[in-house]
Simulated scan of single mutants.
Amino acid sequence: MQAEAVHSLSRNERNPGVPLTPDWFDHIAVNTPAAERRAATLTTRRTVKKEWQAAWLVNAIRCMDLTTLSGDDTPDRVRRLCAKARQPLADRILVGLGLDRVTTGAVCVYPTMVSTAVKALAGSGIPVASVATGFPAGLMPLNLRLAEILYAVDQGAEEIDIVITRAHVLDGNWSALYDEVAAMREAAGAAHLKAILATGDLKTLRNVYKASMVAMQAGADFIKTSTGKEGVNATLPVSLVMARALRDYGARTGFRIGFKPAGGMKTAKDAIAWQILMKEELGNDWLRPDLFRLGASSMLGDIERQLEHHVTGRYAASSRHALA
Rank of each mutant, 00 (worst) to 15 (best):
H7E: 12
A218D: 03
I303K: 01
G313R: 07
V311C: 05
S318L: 13
R92L: 10
C108W: 04
I223M: 06
T47L: 15
A220M: 02
V311M: 05
G258E: 04
F222K: 00
L177G: 11
P88F: 04
T235Y: 05
I257Q: 00
N284T: 14
A29N: 05
D179W: 01
H168T: 10
A218Y: 00
L236A: 13
I149M: 10
A117K: 05
A39S: 13
A234D: 00
L142H: 11
R244E: 14
A132S: 15
A268G: 14
L291R: 01
P141A: 12
A187F: 10
R46T: 14
S298H: 09
F259S: 05
T253N: 00
W286G: 04
I126V: 11
E230N: 15
G172W: 09
Y151E: 15
G189D: 05
E180N: 05
T225E: 05
I196W: 04
P261N: 08
E51T: 14
R247Y: 09
E148V: 08
A29H: 09
R293F: 13
D73K: 09
E230F: 11
D26V: 06
T67K: 12
G228Q: 06
P88A: 12
D248Y: 00
T43Q: 13
A85T: 13
L142S: 11
K49M: 10
L246R: 01
W52D: 11
A60F: 01
V48T: 10
Y178W: 03
N143W: 12
C82Y: 07
T47C: 13
T253E: 00
Q275E: 07
D91S: 14
W24S: 03
L294M: 14
N173I: 05
Q306D: 10
H321P: 03
V30E: 04
D154C: 13
S175P: 04
G254W: 00
V232I: 15
R80T: 11
A262P: 05
W52T: 14
L291V: 08
S130E: 09
D302I: 07
D285Y: 11
Y249D: 00
P16E: 03
K224V: 03
G263F: 06
A243G: 13
